[in-house]
Design a protein around this nucleic acid. Structure first.
Lengths: 240, 240
DNA sequence: TAGCGAAGGTGTGATTGCGTACATAAATTT
DNA sequence: AAATTTATGTACGCAATCACACCTTCGCTA
């Protein structure tokens, strides 16, 4: 993706920037290619860069002292990595992992903070995003606690699908299990159930979404709730 | 509690304010008495006031469409209710319930936003609080998902105890069950287990903490993790 | 002081997900 | 082509929790 493409279809948090602001923003950032598995932030470590996903996808993951892991949110081109800088906090409190390779705009922390001060539109967008993110994490907390693996898997696939181009996702059961916080074989069972109903197909780390409406049916209401959170956020940015 | 007492021992988010700032802040707010069960915010509804607990305690609660409820965070005098205003969002995304009666400083939303603009120290403190809150919600998500009822109950009691004066807590099993997101009888069993080990005592809605170190032993590591989150936040406020 | 409602104790069977273990199968390397 | 690694399928016993139900006890109020 070249500069032109970015300027015409950037990260959605940048939608409300004026052409000038956007141009400056892009000029001050690098277009980077992020690979699956890359770690963008580690709890307790300093945030050196912020990332605005364009067509990549990242996960926010909590790790307990037992080693158990759970994804609490995902970030696609509706969001950014490194929000806490906007709160004046230089260290990440959570791990951020690339789970879908692709491009992102990367900017140094200092530069980002500078842009925040200069552009009220950017600041406003990021603020709203932060609010959405928090709501979403809270929703995920309840979802992970109350809902069964199968609907959660369906939800997760939908959310991932929404944030990705194409219907193919590079995801092993092993990986999914650490996102959902369940055993690998638990994922296998749930995935088979979805597959047997024709909703998805998969083979060795490649999941294909076949029937979105069916998946929505199979997922918990949290999928809809979640979409609403981000839709409302983006609406407001647009109208403000 | 009178004005003088408040000025000498206010909510901890106000610690870093200068005497002048604090005086103005208090002058612009009301001292209110909050009762158990009072609702301070409802998802989707407008935030009319913000609250800075002095010796009361509130819960942030997510309710799913099924009616299932889960507490994702609690707010004592280390925090505030209505943070999203600092992000320019006027509606609460979560329910806030008073679970420990007491006093709080209440201020109108508009006035609060005004103070935020005027006082960099206040703004800084609230920002850091927001960051802590988000980390804490994420931690709670993993905790609720992975940990058993008994350690979670122990953790919950400790956290509540930390934010309350005295060792007596007004809490029925029914209420606890909706905080932890489990059945009422599940709480009964867990509470009995803690009681039989001499860690707590209770009778008809009154829980007494007998052995804090013992409770810490019985709770999951999340209690410590959580304390660290807020300790770090307050440290930084002090040094900044 | 009788009655009522709220709070707590207990039990039973069903279900979900865990821990573990082992088997198969597809890709990758040698 | 053989060996190895990675990914997936499956099974079994166990533990936690659920859903439901019923009983007891305490404290308030009429």
């Amino acid at each position: 993706m070249d500069q032109t493409a970015v300027l015409s279809n950037p990260n959605r948090l940048l939608d409300s920037l004026t052409a000038q602001e956007l141009e400056r923003f892009v000029a001050d950032s690098d277009m980077v290619d992020l690979k699956f598995g890359q770690v963008l932030a580690e709890p307790g470590e300093r945030i050196l860069h912020v990332y605005f996903p364009i067509d990549c996808l990242a996960s926010l993951i909590v790790t307990l002292e037992s080693g158990a892991r759970l994804e609490v949110s995902m970030v696609g081109n509706e969001g950014m990595v490194g929000v806490s800088l906007m709160l004046g906090v230089q260290e990440s409190s959570i791990q951020v992992l690339v789970k879908g390779g692709g491009t992102a705009l990367r900017m140094s922390s200092a530069c980002f903070q500078d842009h925040l001060e200069r552009s009220p539109a950017l600041k406003k967008a990021i603020k709203r995003y932060l609010n959405a993110l928090m709501s979403q994490i809270a929703q995920s907390a309840a979802c992970a606690h109350f809902h069964a693996v199968e609907p959660r898997l369906a939800r997760w696939l939908l959310m991932t699908h929404d944030r990705t181009q194409g219907d193919q996702l590079h995801l092993t059961h092993e990986f999914l299990s650490s996102m959902l916080g369940v055993r690998r074989s638990g994922v296998t069972v749930a995935a088979k159930a979805l597959q047997s109903r024709g909703l998805i197909g998969y083979q060795r780390g490649k999941i294909t979404v076949h029937d979105r409406p069916g998946l929505e049916e199979a997922s918990c209401h949290c999928y809809v709730a979640d979409r609403q959170i981000y839709d409302r956020m983006l609406e407001r940015v647009a109208f403000s």
